[in-house]
Write a protein that binds this DNA or RNA. Structure first.
Length: 460
DNA sequence: TCTGGGGTCCTAGGACCC
DNA sequence: TCTGGGGTCCTAGGACCC
């Protein structure tokens, strides 16, 4: 932190002069901050959608990733757990409550350690969502079953997920960022892409100054740390943000491709998952450098036209995707894994209640976002983990729970349910904004035309 | 006592239309 | 009477991401 240029050093002339030369405007949306004199974005003047591609400007794209976000937020609330192994788990709240008789709602910064449940006293389904770094050193991590984690680290404390809290901190750190760099792409609660290219000071030290400023501003405002990678594009920035975790910054230049990217295993690329990685390995391609030795034709022959061509460009560090500063939701869904596998013939009542609850939740989610959708679908995961989906598209978009439930039960009828299953899900897609015109007769059309008949659960 | 929940995007076949 | 060829929409499944 000793070499910080911000906030004390004045803005250099080149930062603004070139901006003015390009836009013919004196930095309309930026003005010096009264405290440090650094130009900050003024939200009241509106944010640009994206920077223009400008010859002479080095594209400087950052990827910012909060460190162990959920777990770190929990540690802010329960500092007595700091330094100890803690996992945030998908266990049901009621289960956690049973473990030691203390309701998580009653925890606070003074709760003694013995009132937090530990993995060793947990029995049931569920996986880890996030683990603190102390817990990760035992080999436990995201997506691992809680029971398996209990074997590796029985003394780890187990906390329930609290999405409201995470969303709150998510908004907070993104507000901080937007004050400094207004071109931001949301890619989840705990990470964003940023475009420093034309932000005043964004080119300084190839983006290091700006990354430091953002990192420190977030820490001062929230007490949370993050890691930032800055590179010529999103592909490389994403990888760079992992180089120096936690609380690190990595700056990647064009010339660093061979030395810093090629040695990495293919799996590190955002978009190469377990399946593709297996296939690459079977072809003798272990590292990104290996990938770069293969011809375009070879890769297309093995992976298809689109994915093969994408792999070819990935190996060369090429990626010209712009940041997407807006996105409309495509679908909304709710699903749940039961505490035990259920059978329609035996568990009709329980399934009916779960089904209704899922439809109601999706309906409320849609209404909260002022959306409705034309396609309704269901998902079943059987006891053997085979997943099937069915969906149906309606003439009119809907958002009411009973309409969703009616269409979803039509879908369920098309699935053979003589086998036990572990998960039920309900989804609405083909979303469109809800018209605010209350007079619209179509708004309740689906409900009106709904035939009254027994559905798959034998209810009316 | 294996294996969550909420998403996005892609593919591929069939229906249907011009 | 051989295989015409676009285009779009719908559906099911699957890979991948956080």
């Amino acid at each position: 932190m000793s070499k910080l240029e911000h906030p004390s050093s004045p803005l250099k002339a080149e930062d603004t002069d070139s901006f003015e030369a390009v836009f013919g405007l004196p930095l309309p949306a930026f003005k010096p901050h009264p405290q440090d004199g650094i130009s900050r974005h003024d939200p009241s003047l509106g944010a640009p959608e994206a920077w223009p591609q400008t010859p002479g400007f080095k594209r400087r794209i950052a990827h910012l990733d909060m460190d162990a976000f959920y777990a770190s937020v929990e540690l802010l609330r329960y500092p007595q757990l700091k330094g100890l192994p803690v996992v945030i788990g998908g266990g049901k709240k009621s289960l956690l409550k049973q473990l030691n008789g203390v309701d998580p709602a009653d925890w606070d910064a003074n709760t003694p350690l013995h009132q937090f449940p530990q993995l060793k006293s947990y029995a049931g389904r569920g996986v880890i969502t996030t683990a603190t770094y102390a817990a990760r050193s035992f080999g436990v991590g995201s997506a691992m079953g809680l029971m398996k984690a209990a074997q590796l680290c029985p003394q780890a404390y187990l906390l329930p997920v609290d999405f409201d809290q995470y969303r709150h901190y998510s908004q907070r750190f993104k507000e901080i960022i937007l004050e400094i760099c207004p071109v931001m792409q949301n890619t989840g609660v705990d990470e964003v892409y940023l475009d420093f290219t034309h932000v005043p000071g964004g080119q300084r030290e190839n983006g290091l100054s700006m990354a430091k400023l953002i990192q420190r501003s977030i820490f001062q405002a929230t007490g949370l740390t993050c890691s930032i990678g800055v590179a010529p594009n999103k592909l490389l920035a994403k990888m760079a943000s992992e180089f120096n975790k936690p609380n690190g910054i990595s700056i990647l230049l064009e010339g660093d491709l061979q030395s810093r990217i090629w040695p990495l295993p293919c799996k590190k690329v955002n978009g190469i998952g377990p399946k593709a990685d297996e296939k690459l390995k079977s072809l003798g391609i272990l590292s990104i450098g290996d990938l770069a030795t293969r011809s375009l034709d070879t890769l297309i022959a093995s992976f298809g036209k689109k994915y093969g061509a994408w792999l070819y460009s990935v190996a060369r560090g090429q990626d010209d995707r712009p940041l997407e500063t807006h996105s409309d939701p495509v679908s909304m869904s709710r699903e749940t894994t039961f505490e035990r596998n259920l059978l329609v013939a035996k568990d009709r009542q329980e399934l009916g209640e779960i089904f209704t609850r899922l439809c109601t939740q999706v309906s409320l989610d849609l209404q909260r976002k002022n959306l409705k959708g034309k396609t309704v679908g269901v998902k079943i995961k059987f006891d053997n983990f085979k997943t099937v989906t069915r969906d149906q598209t309606l003439e009119v978009a809907i958002d009411q729970a009973q309409d969703i439930r009616h269409t979803a039960s039509q879908c369920l009828k098309r699935i053979d349910l003589t086998r036990r299953f572990r998960l039920l899900g309900v989804r609405v897609s083909s979303l469109e904004p809800k018209t605010l015109d209350a007079q619209d007769p179509q708004a309740s059309g689906a409900s009106r035309s709904r035939p009254v008949q027994a559905n798959w659960l034998g209810e009316s």
